[in-house]
Design a protein around this nucleic acid. Structure first.
Lengths: 196, 196
DNA sequence: GTCTATAATTCGATAGAC
DNA sequence: GTCTATCGAATTATAGAC
């Protein structure tokens, strides 16, 4: 009884996560999700009260993914500088998805920032950014950049967001790879105390 | 007779440009545009065959705005390096709009890149990027960076896009201003032949 | 050229049988 | 818990009077 419930709920979230990423939130209908999850439309309302609640479930799912990634990065190295280089390198395996659909967190935030959306949804989507922002800030602090850690974290995330937007627009993988290389060098420099 | 026609057409494009920017393309309905332009819904189809055609008109309108901006920058200085610094500085007066709604070109491209859209629309929206990309490439070439001009132009645009995305998400004007300052310094360095 | 009425479809959401 | 049938509202788009 409970296992089946959890399964169906997970199937819906899983299908919605892919579709919201590939098509956008507003452009994805219940019919789309139902078809991919192979669950009748009317059954959705047993698990979620509204489409917004499905999105909240999707965001939670992404938050869990992000936290697991950051734990792996922390386990991989005790050096905050190397951890952050590992973070930007970890974007490379996702290059093909970024090329096709952009950054899942960035494009969702961009879409939900537009008017007409409930404010609560926007704040929840921004938590995807907050998660990485706080982690990067911690790493910069640990590397000795206590004073500018917040701004440095924002800068690094902005660089990745910009690279994702342009890669999505121009489908040019070597540009993205070059940006990752530049960011690795930038992190090393900043950790050595050389601001730029 | 013709003056009235041109006026109404321009009113529709003007209202749609604002709404597509503030709410997004898919989230904006004919009713929204009709209300702001103060023109009955049914009248739209005398001027445009479909919603897509309104968007094409909006993109043309933005292209004209962009070309005029670039002409002003060229007239302001003969030095390609100073022209590009002027370009990034020209983002500052738009900071409040970027904070509220992101970059109009970036968010439109991000939205249209999602599936379900006609391919022609995506290509037209990308012309907004192409316009600046080609101009920046020309300036980098003129500054002596013939070899890397294409990649440098992409990098600069990516930096601006990323700053817009993060400013839109976090509403933090000093971050954006700092990014502009960093980019001015970066342009100066690159023009002096110091790659980074 | 301008505007109203409405068609045709799709949307998110609900009711209720089983 | 599962599924079908369907509602009311909103959407793009059209027909046709003036």
């Amino acid at each position: 009884m409970e296992t089946s419930t959890t399964d169906n709920r997970q199937r819906i979230i899983s299908a919605a996560r892919e579709l919201f990423y590939q098509q956008g939130y507003n452009a994805t209908s219940f019919s789309d999700i139902a078809q991919r999850a192979e669950i009748p439309r009317g059954n959705f309302y047993y698990y979620f009260k509204s489409k917004d609640e499905i999105l909240l479930g999707v965001i939670d799912s992404w938050l869990a993914f992000g936290r697991a990634s950051l734990e792996n990065l922390e386990a991989a190295s005790p050096d905050p500088c190397e951890r952050m280089r590992g973070f930007v390198r970890s974007m490379l395996p996702m290059l093909d998805n970024i090329r096709q659909h952009g950054c899942p967190f960035g494009s969702l935030n961009t879409e939900l920032r537009k008017d007409n959306n409930e404010e609560g949804l926007r704040d929840r989507a921004r938590e995807l950014f907050d998660m990485y922002r706080a982690w990067l800030e911690t790493q910069f602090c640990a590397s000795g950049q206590e004073e500018d850690a917040g701004m440095l974290a924002l800068h690094l995330m902005g660089r990745l967001q910009g690279a994702s937007v342009m890669t999505n627009a121009y489908q040019q993988p070597d540009y993205f790879e070059n940006e990752i290389t530049l960011l690795e060098a930038w992190i090393s420099k900043v950790c050595e105390g050389q601001r730029l």
